[in-house]
Simulated assay, not measured.
Amino acid sequence: MNPLELFKSIYDNEQDKTDSINGQLSLPIGLVIVLSGVLAFYIEKCPECKLVFEKEKIDIWLTVFVLCLFFLLLFIIRAIYHLVRARYKYKYAYISDPEEFSEYIAELSQYYSGQGLDPASAEELISIDLDKNLVKQYRNAALINQKNNFSKMGWMHKAIDSIVIALIMLGFSLFPFYKISKKENPIHRIEIVNKELHQ
């Protein structure tokens, strides 16, 4: 494999990797949206998201639930931050477009014609120079894109770690939420007792 084929292969591989990473980001983004929806549901349905003190005694289930809710929110925010870092502010490098290559070839052709070379020799030298230029562009672009992809993968893995922890917190919160939601409202209990006393 000559240098041109080698660096072109590396460049194409990094381009494919970029598309793959961008595609993989859709699942974490979807999970964050779902987790945010669950968090909104919890906040709406929870009778009161704060510690309750009754005769100097803490409501243990509400305490556990609020703690789970806090960590769920924390890791959702962390995941969003990591996803933003994985998605935006990356400048990828590309080789020159066809028009720029045409101008470069025309400049080389004019230069070698001015040197008094015959067309066959000039064409051979143009081909050599063009290959060297392509090798340089592929190498530089592949290096930049490789660094970008490595950074994006790192941020994406951090986002996934945060999402996994958020899912664990969601799992821990289910039973406390169930216990809280099943508790009888004391106001309703008082109303029922009062009605029974007046009958």
Rank of each mutant, 00 (worst) to 15 (best):
residue 32 V to D: 00
residue 68 C to T: 12
residue 43 I to N: 11
residue 108 L to C: 11
residue 40 A to T: 06
residue 43 I to P: 02
residue 38 V to S: 11
residue 47 P to L: 04
residue 65 F to Q: 03
residue 107 E to G: 06
residue 90 Y to W: 05
residue 82 H to E: 13
residue 102 S to N: 15
residue 107 E to F: 08
residue 66 V to W: 01
residue 93 A to E: 03
residue 106 A to M: 04
residue 60 I to P: 10
residue 40 A to I: 09
residue 86 A to S: 08
residue 30 G to R: 08
residue 74 L to P: 01
residue 51 L to H: 08
residue 32 V to W: 00
residue 24 Q to W: 04
residue 81 Y to V: 15
residue 92 Y to E: 01
residue 31 L to S: 05
residue 29 I to M: 12
residue 87 R to E: 09
residue 49 C to W: 11
residue 62 L to F: 05
residue 53 F to H: 13
residue 26 S to W: 07
residue 53 F to Q: 15
residue 64 V to T: 09
residue 36 S to N: 12
residue 37 G to Y: 05
residue 86 A to G: 08
residue 34 V to Y: 04
residue 78 R to I: 14
residue 65 F to S: 04
residue 100 E to C: 04
residue 34 V to K: 07
residue 107 E to I: 05
residue 88 Y to F: 12
residue 62 L to G: 08
residue 108 L to V: 01
residue 39 L to E: 05
residue 49 C to Y: 14
residue 75 F to K: 01
residue 59 D to T: 03
residue 44 E to G: 13
residue 84 V to D: 05
residue 67 L to M: 14
residue 75 F to Y: 11
residue 65 F to G: 02
residue 99 E to V: 12
residue 79 A to L: 01
residue 55 K to C: 10
residue 101 F to Y: 13
residue 60 I to M: 08
residue 59 D to S: 01
residue 42 Y to S: 07
residue 25 L to A: 14
residue 93 A to P: 00
residue 44 E to F: 15
residue 41 F to R: 06
residue 65 F to L: 14
residue 70 F to A: 15
residue 31 L to V: 06
residue 26 S to T: 12
